[in-house]
Design a protein around this nucleic acid. Structure first.
Lengths: 219, 219
DNA sequence: CCTGCATTTAGACCGGCGGTCTAAGCGAGT
DNA sequence: ACTCGCTTAGACCGCCGGTCTAAATGCAGG
C-alpha cells in the first residue's frame, strides 16, 4: 500500500513537464496509432524506458495514462470556449454566430494539431476511452448544456425538448460531422472543404432551433 | 488447414436452428451483459458446453459469433424497411410520414425485444463490434443513403451537402436519440415517452430538410 | 466386412494483455 | 550509524483470443 496518501495522479502532476513527457510522448504515439484498447501499456513502458512499478506509481491504470496524454494536448484549447455571459448578452443571431466561430476555430485547431485530432477521434470510437476521461468529458458536456441553456433564455434554442437531449444530440452531431470530414477531407480541395464546413454547420444548428423557425412538412 | 473449403460461417448456417442456439443463447447473454470486448469467448464456450476446437470450426473468431448472435435477433425486422419505390412515389409530406412511421415501429421493436436493443446498443458503443458486423452495417447504411436519395428526388431532402454526409449524420442522430431514451426512459411515464419520442423525430428530420424550409438566424 | 482418406472434435498450448506484489534501493531525520 | 518510509524494479498472476496436434469419427470403394 504505497500509493494511497497522495494519489498516483497528484504525484504525476508534481513532476516536471519534461519528466511527464517521458511517458506521455510514447503514450501519445501508441494511442494515436492503436487506439485505446489496442494500445499496449507494456509497449509504452518499454518505449519510455521505465519500469512497471514506477509507471503504476504515477498512473493508477491504463485509463489514467490516456487521460494525462489527452489533457496535455487539450490544455492550450481551454481559453477558446466562450463564457455563458458572452452568449446571453446577445440576440439569437449573435448567439449562433459565436458558436459558428467557435466551431471554425476548433476545426482549425484539429487541422493544425493532428495528434490532438487523433486522440479525440479515439475518444469518439471507444467507450473504454470515454470512461477513462469521464470527468473532463462530463465537464465538456456540461459546458454544452450551459451554452444551450443560455441560448434558450434568448430564444435561440428550442425548449420543447429536454436540455440533456439537446446537449447529447449536439455533441453527437459534432462528432458525426467531424468524423465525416476526417474520412473525406483527403478527397477535397481546401476551398471545397471550407465551403462544405460552413454549410455543414447548419446540420448542427437546425435541429436545435425553436420549431417556429422551421416549417417542416409534418407540422 | 481443415476449415477452408466451406467457410466456418457456411458450416454454421447449415446447422439446425436448435444446434445454432447452443452457442447463440449463451453468447447473447454474455454480449448483452459485458459488451463485445468485455465478453469472454472462453466463458461462452464453457456455458455452451462446447470445445474450443468445435467452436472455431463454426466461427472464424469472436466477431463472427457476435455477428451470428445479432443476425438471429435482427432477422424478424427485415421486412419493416420501406422500399425506395414507396418513398419516391409520394410527396415530401408522405415521405417524412413514412419515415416517422418506420421510426415508431422500430422503437416498438426495441421496447419489446430488450435483448435486441442491448445488442444494438453494444454496437453503438464499441468500434470493434462495428467492425465485426461491418457487412450488414454497411448494407443498412446504404439503405439509409438510398432512402435519402429518394427523398432528394422529390425535394424532401436537401441536396446541398454530400449524400454520404447526410447518411452518416442521420444514422448517428438515430443512435444518439435512441441512446438518450435508453438512459432516460426509466424516469418517464409511458405517455411522456411517446409524446417526447414524436417530438424528437424533428431532431432527425430538420437537419435533412432543404435549407429553403428553414429560416435560420444566420442565413 | 475392412481399409484408407477427409472431416470433425477435444483441449493443451501460445504469446500478450492489464494489473499486483515482494523485495531491494535510497535518502532524510536523529 | 541506523532506522523508517517512500520509491523503484521486474517477476509473477489470471485471463484473454487464437492456434495446433492428434485422436475420433464418418464414409467411400472394394
Amino acid at each position: 500500500m504505497s500509493s494511497s496518501s497522495p494519489s498516483a495522479r497528484a504525484r504525476f502532476l508534481d513532476l516536471d513537464p519534461q519528466e511527464r513527457a517521458l511517458w506521455l510522448d510514447p503514450a501519445e504515439g501508441e494511442f494515436t496509432t492503436h487506439g485505446f484498447e489496442g494500445a499496449s501499456l507494456n509497449r509504452i513502458i518499454a518505449a519510455a524506458g521505465e519500469s512497471k512499478g514506477r509507471t503504476y506509481h504515477y498512473f493508477s491504470n491504463k485509463g489514467a495514462l490516456f487521460r494525462a496524454t489527452l489533457e496535455r494536448r487539450l490544455a492550450p484549447l481551454a481559453d477558446l470556449m466562450p463564457t455563458v455571459d458572452d452568449l446571453t448578452t446577445s440576440d439569437a443571431r449573435a448567439f449562433w454566430q459565436t458558436l459558428a466561430g467557435l466551431c471554425l476555430r476548433l476545426t482549425e485547431c484539429f487541422q493544425q494539431d493532428t495528434r490532438l485530432a487523433a486522440l479525440i477521434r479515439t475518444l469518439h470510437r471507444e467507450i473504454a476511452a470515454q470512461e477513462a476521461v469521464a470527468a473532463p468529458l462530463n465537464a465538456f458536456r456540461a459546458q454544452i448544456g450551459a451554452a444551450l441553456q443560455a441560448g434558450q433564455t434568448i430564444g435561440a434554442v428550442r425548449d420543447d425538448l429536454p436540455l440533456s437531449m439537446l446537449s447529447d444530440v449536439a455533441l453527437d452531431l459534432l462528432i458525426s460531422i467531424d468524423r465525416w470530414f476526417a474520412h473525406h477531407a483527403a478527397a477535397l480541395s481546401e476551398g471545397e472543404e471550407a465551403a462544405l464546413s460552413r454549410r455543414a454547420f447548419s446540420l448542427l444548428m437546425t435541429p436545435l432551433l425553436p420549431p417556429s423557425q422551421t416549417q417542416g412538412p409534418l407540422s
